[in-house]
Amino acid sequence: MLTRKQHELICFIHDRLEETGVSPSFEEMKEALDLKSKSGVHRLISALEERGFIRRLPNRARALEILKMPERGEVVKLAKKAPRVEAPQPSQQPPRPAPANDVIEIPLHGRIAAGVPIEAFESDAMLSVPAALLGSGDHYALEVSGDSMVEAGILDGDYALIRRQEVARDGEIVVALIEEAEATLKYFRREGAMVRLDPANRAYDPQRYAPQQVRVQGKLAGLLRRYD
Protein backbone atom coordinates (compact mmCIF):
# COMPACT_ATOMS: atom_id res chain seq x y z
CA MET A 1 0.00 0.00 0.00
CA LEU A 2 1.53 3.30 -1.08
CA THR A 3 1.36 6.57 0.81
CA ARG A 4 -0.44 9.52 -0.73
CA LYS A 5 2.82 11.21 -1.71
CA GLN A 6 4.12 7.99 -3.27
CA HIS A 7 0.85 7.78 -5.25
CA GLU A 8 1.20 11.37 -6.40
CA LEU A 9 4.81 10.93 -7.45
CA ILE A 10 4.36 7.76 -9.53
CA CYS A 11 1.33 9.25 -11.26
CA PHE A 12 3.21 12.48 -11.99
CA ILE A 13 6.13 10.49 -13.44
CA HIS A 14 3.71 8.36 -15.49
CA ASP A 15 1.98 11.42 -16.96
CA ARG A 16 5.28 13.09 -17.85
CA LEU A 17 6.61 9.95 -19.53
CA GLU A 18 3.39 9.62 -21.51
CA GLU A 19 3.62 13.23 -22.66
CA THR A 20 7.33 13.64 -23.39
CA GLY A 21 9.08 10.29 -23.02
CA VAL A 22 11.43 11.89 -20.47
CA SER A 23 11.01 11.56 -16.74
CA PRO A 24 10.74 14.83 -14.76
CA SER A 25 13.69 16.38 -12.95
CA PHE A 26 14.03 16.31 -9.16
CA GLU A 27 13.16 20.02 -9.10
CA GLU A 28 9.99 19.45 -11.11
CA MET A 29 8.96 16.57 -8.86
CA LYS A 30 9.65 18.65 -5.75
CA GLU A 31 7.44 21.48 -7.02
CA ALA A 32 4.67 19.16 -8.24
CA LEU A 33 4.42 17.47 -4.83
CA ASP A 34 4.96 20.71 -2.86
CA LEU A 35 7.96 19.28 -1.00
CA LYS A 36 10.47 21.42 0.87
CA SER A 37 13.60 19.74 -0.51
CA LYS A 38 14.79 17.39 -3.23
CA SER A 39 15.93 14.90 -0.60
CA GLY A 40 12.23 14.21 0.02
CA VAL A 41 11.88 13.30 -3.66
CA HIS A 42 14.89 11.01 -3.37
CA ARG A 43 13.30 9.17 -0.44
CA LEU A 44 10.00 8.74 -2.31
CA ILE A 45 11.76 7.39 -5.40
CA SER A 46 13.77 4.96 -3.28
CA ALA A 47 10.57 3.75 -1.60
CA LEU A 48 8.84 3.20 -4.96
CA GLU A 49 11.92 1.40 -6.24
CA GLU A 50 12.04 -0.89 -3.20
CA ARG A 51 8.36 -1.76 -3.72
CA GLY A 52 8.91 -2.66 -7.35
CA PHE A 53 6.87 0.15 -8.92
CA ILE A 54 9.76 1.89 -10.70
CA ARG A 55 13.40 1.31 -11.52
CA ARG A 56 16.27 3.63 -12.32
CA LEU A 57 17.93 2.91 -15.64
CA PRO A 58 21.72 2.61 -15.22
CA ASN A 59 24.10 5.19 -16.71
CA ARG A 60 21.34 7.65 -17.52
CA ALA A 61 20.16 10.78 -15.77
CA ARG A 62 16.54 11.29 -14.81
CA ALA A 63 15.95 7.84 -16.31
CA LEU A 64 13.02 6.27 -14.49
CA GLU A 65 10.99 3.36 -15.84
CA ILE A 66 7.58 2.50 -14.43
CA LEU A 67 7.33 -1.25 -13.90
CA LYS A 68 3.75 -1.23 -12.64
CA MET A 69 1.09 1.20 -11.53
CA PRO A 70 -0.87 0.99 -8.26
CA GLU A 71 -4.09 -1.00 -8.28
CA ARG A 72 -6.93 0.83 -10.01
CA GLY A 73 -8.87 1.26 -6.76
CA GLU A 74 -5.91 2.99 -5.15
CA VAL A 75 -5.53 5.34 -8.07
CA VAL A 76 -9.23 6.23 -8.04
CA LYS A 77 -8.96 7.29 -4.41
CA LEU A 78 -6.20 9.67 -5.32
CA ALA A 79 -8.10 10.96 -8.35
CA LYS A 80 -10.38 12.99 -6.06
CA LYS A 81 -7.47 15.32 -5.46
CA ALA A 82 -5.64 14.89 -8.74
CA PRO A 83 -8.00 13.94 -11.61
CA ARG A 84 -5.18 13.12 -14.03
CA VAL A 85 -3.67 10.30 -12.03
CA GLU A 86 -5.76 7.39 -13.35
CA ALA A 87 -3.58 5.21 -15.55
CA PRO A 88 -3.82 1.98 -17.56
CA GLN A 89 -3.13 -1.36 -15.93
CA PRO A 90 0.46 -2.61 -16.39
CA SER A 91 -0.47 -4.87 -19.32
CA GLN A 92 -2.11 -1.92 -21.10
CA GLN A 93 0.78 0.51 -20.86
CA PRO A 94 2.09 1.38 -24.35
CA PRO A 95 5.85 1.33 -25.04
CA ARG A 96 7.59 4.63 -24.48
CA PRO A 97 10.95 5.97 -25.60
CA ALA A 98 13.78 5.67 -23.08
CA PRO A 99 15.03 8.93 -21.52
CA ALA A 100 18.35 10.03 -22.95
CA ASN A 101 19.71 12.65 -20.56
CA ASP A 102 23.25 12.46 -19.25
CA VAL A 103 23.17 14.22 -15.87
CA ILE A 104 21.64 12.93 -12.65
CA GLU A 105 21.15 14.57 -9.25
CA ILE A 106 22.24 12.74 -6.10
CA PRO A 107 22.14 13.85 -2.45
CA LEU A 108 25.16 15.82 -1.24
CA HIS A 109 25.68 14.91 2.42
CA GLY A 110 28.29 17.43 3.52
CA ARG A 111 32.05 17.09 4.01
CA ILE A 112 34.05 13.98 4.79
CA ALA A 113 37.60 13.81 6.08
CA ALA A 114 40.39 12.39 3.98
CA GLY A 115 42.75 13.15 6.86
CA VAL A 116 41.91 13.15 10.56
CA PRO A 117 38.24 12.09 10.95
CA ILE A 118 35.76 14.94 11.22
CA GLU A 119 32.06 14.88 12.01
CA ALA A 120 29.94 14.13 8.94
CA PHE A 121 26.68 15.99 8.61
CA GLU A 122 23.55 15.70 6.50
CA SER A 123 22.09 18.39 4.26
CA ASP A 124 19.30 18.82 1.73
CA ALA A 125 21.72 19.82 -1.06
CA MET A 126 21.89 17.92 -4.34
CA LEU A 127 24.83 17.48 -6.73
CA SER A 128 24.51 17.14 -10.51
CA VAL A 129 26.71 14.27 -11.69
CA PRO A 130 27.40 12.80 -15.15
CA ALA A 131 25.46 9.56 -15.22
CA ALA A 132 28.42 7.75 -16.80
CA LEU A 133 30.28 8.06 -13.48
CA LEU A 134 27.65 6.00 -11.66
CA GLY A 135 26.74 2.37 -12.01
CA SER A 136 23.81 0.52 -10.54
CA GLY A 137 22.67 1.04 -6.96
CA ASP A 138 21.89 4.00 -4.73
CA HIS A 139 24.47 6.79 -4.61
CA TYR A 140 25.25 9.96 -2.68
CA ALA A 141 28.10 12.47 -2.71
CA LEU A 142 30.45 13.82 -0.07
CA GLU A 143 32.85 16.75 -0.33
CA VAL A 144 36.41 15.69 0.51
CA SER A 145 38.26 17.59 3.23
CA GLY A 146 41.98 16.97 3.72
CA ASP A 147 44.91 15.51 1.83
CA SER A 148 45.46 12.01 3.18
CA MET A 149 44.17 10.34 -0.01
CA VAL A 150 46.21 12.38 -2.51
CA GLU A 151 48.26 9.38 -3.65
CA ALA A 152 44.98 7.78 -4.73
CA GLY A 153 44.20 10.92 -6.76
CA ILE A 154 41.61 12.20 -4.26
CA LEU A 155 42.20 15.87 -3.47
CA ASP A 156 40.81 18.39 -1.00
CA GLY A 157 37.58 19.85 -2.41
CA ASP A 158 36.82 16.88 -4.68
CA TYR A 159 33.39 15.26 -4.57
CA ALA A 160 33.49 11.57 -3.70
CA LEU A 161 30.63 9.66 -5.33
CA ILE A 162 29.62 6.86 -2.98
CA ARG A 163 27.60 3.72 -3.67
CA ARG A 164 25.61 2.80 -0.56
CA GLN A 165 26.66 -0.55 0.90
CA GLU A 166 27.45 -1.94 4.33
CA VAL A 167 30.20 -4.44 3.48
CA ALA A 168 33.65 -4.00 2.01
CA ARG A 169 36.53 -6.11 0.78
CA ASP A 170 40.17 -5.54 1.66
CA GLY A 171 41.71 -2.78 -0.43
CA GLU A 172 38.47 -0.95 -1.29
CA ILE A 173 38.13 2.78 -0.61
CA VAL A 174 35.15 3.23 1.67
CA VAL A 175 33.28 5.73 3.80
CA ALA A 176 33.78 4.45 7.34
CA LEU A 177 31.61 5.72 10.18
CA ILE A 178 33.62 5.61 13.41
CA GLU A 179 31.73 5.14 16.68
CA GLU A 180 28.54 6.41 15.00
CA ALA A 181 29.87 9.98 15.12
CA GLU A 182 32.68 10.64 12.66
CA ALA A 183 33.20 9.63 9.05
CA THR A 184 36.36 9.25 7.01
CA LEU A 185 37.38 8.15 3.52
CA LYS A 186 40.08 5.47 3.60
CA TYR A 187 41.28 2.13 2.27
CA PHE A 188 39.55 -0.64 4.21
CA ARG A 189 41.64 -3.56 5.46
CA ARG A 190 41.33 -6.27 8.09
CA GLU A 191 44.30 -6.82 10.37
CA GLY A 192 43.80 -9.80 12.65
CA ALA A 193 40.91 -8.96 14.95
CA MET A 194 41.09 -5.26 14.07
CA VAL A 195 39.92 -3.03 11.23
CA ARG A 196 42.64 -0.86 9.71
CA LEU A 197 41.83 2.29 7.75
CA ASP A 198 44.77 3.21 5.54
CA PRO A 199 45.49 6.68 4.10
CA ALA A 200 47.04 7.21 0.66
CA ASN A 201 49.63 9.69 1.91
CA ARG A 202 52.87 8.62 3.57
CA ALA A 203 52.64 11.60 5.93
CA TYR A 204 49.67 9.94 7.70
CA ASP A 205 49.53 6.79 9.82
CA PRO A 206 46.94 4.01 9.50
CA GLN A 207 44.03 4.09 11.95
CA ARG A 208 43.11 0.91 13.81
CA TYR A 209 39.75 0.18 15.42
CA ALA A 210 37.83 -2.71 16.89
CA PRO A 211 35.23 -3.99 14.36
CA GLN A 212 32.33 -2.76 16.49
CA GLN A 213 33.72 0.77 16.28
CA VAL A 214 33.54 0.93 12.48
CA ARG A 215 30.52 0.77 10.19
CA VAL A 216 30.92 0.86 6.41
CA GLN A 217 28.60 3.45 4.86
CA GLY A 218 29.51 2.99 1.21
CA LYS A 219 32.18 2.34 -1.39
CA LEU A 220 33.87 4.91 -3.61
CA ALA A 221 32.29 4.69 -7.07
CA GLY A 222 33.68 7.80 -8.73
CA LEU A 223 35.16 11.24 -8.28
CA LEU A 224 34.04 14.67 -9.45
CA ARG A 225 36.37 17.64 -9.56
CA ARG A 226 35.51 21.25 -10.29
CA TYR A 227 38.02 23.72 -11.70
CA ASP A 228 37.54 27.40 -10.86
Rank of each mutant, 00 (worst) to 15 (best):
D147G: 03
I154R: 02
A176Q: 05
L155H: 12
S148F: 00
I106N: 05
S128D: 13
I154L: 00
M126G: 07
A176T: 04
H139W: 05
E172S: 05
S123R: 05
E122W: 10
L133N: 05
V174R: 01
A131R: 01
V144P: 07
D124W: 02
E143F: 05
V129E: 03
V116A: 14
E172C: 00
G153S: 08
A160E: 03
A113T: 07
Y140Q: 09
L142M: 12
D156P: 00
V103L: 15
Y140P: 06
S128M: 12
L133S: 08
L161W: 03
I178K: 00
G153F: 04
R169E: 11
V174D: 02
P97I: 12
S136H: 13
L161F: 02
A114P: 06
L127M: 05
Q165V: 00
P99D: 07
P107V: 10
D138V: 15
D124Q: 08
I173E: 00
H109R: 15
A152Q: 01
P117R: 08
A160H: 01
P97G: 05
M126A: 07
A125L: 13
D158G: 05
E119S: 13
V103A: 12
V129W: 01
I112A: 05
I112L: 11
D147H: 10
V167K: 12
L177M: 14
D138N: 15
S123Q: 09
I104C: 11
V103D: 12
H139Y: 12
I173G: 00
I118V: 13
G171R: 03
S128A: 15
P107E: 11
I106D: 07
E182L: 10
S123H: 05
G171N: 06
P99K: 06
S136G: 14
P117T: 07
H139V: 07
G153M: 03
L133D: 01
E172I: 03
E105Y: 13
G135N: 07
L134R: 04
D102T: 14
R96Y: 10
L177N: 13
A183N: 07
G171T: 01
R111S: 15
I178R: 00
E182F: 11
E105R: 13
A168I: 04
I154M: 00
S123N: 08
L177H: 03
G157R: 08
E182V: 08
A183Q: 10
A168T: 02
G153C: 04
V103Y: 13
A120K: 06
A183T: 09
L108N: 09
S123F: 03
R111W: 14
P117S: 08
P97Y: 02
D124P: 01
G110V: 11
A125E: 15
A132K: 12
V167A: 11
V175G: 00
S128N: 14
G171H: 01
A120Y: 08
R169V: 00
D102L: 14
A100M: 12
P130S: 01
A132M: 12
A168F: 03
Y159E: 10
A125M: 13
D124F: 04
I178C: 01
G135S: 10
V150L: 09
M126V: 10
G153H: 04
G157Q: 09
P117H: 05
Y140V: 11
G110F: 11
E182T: 11
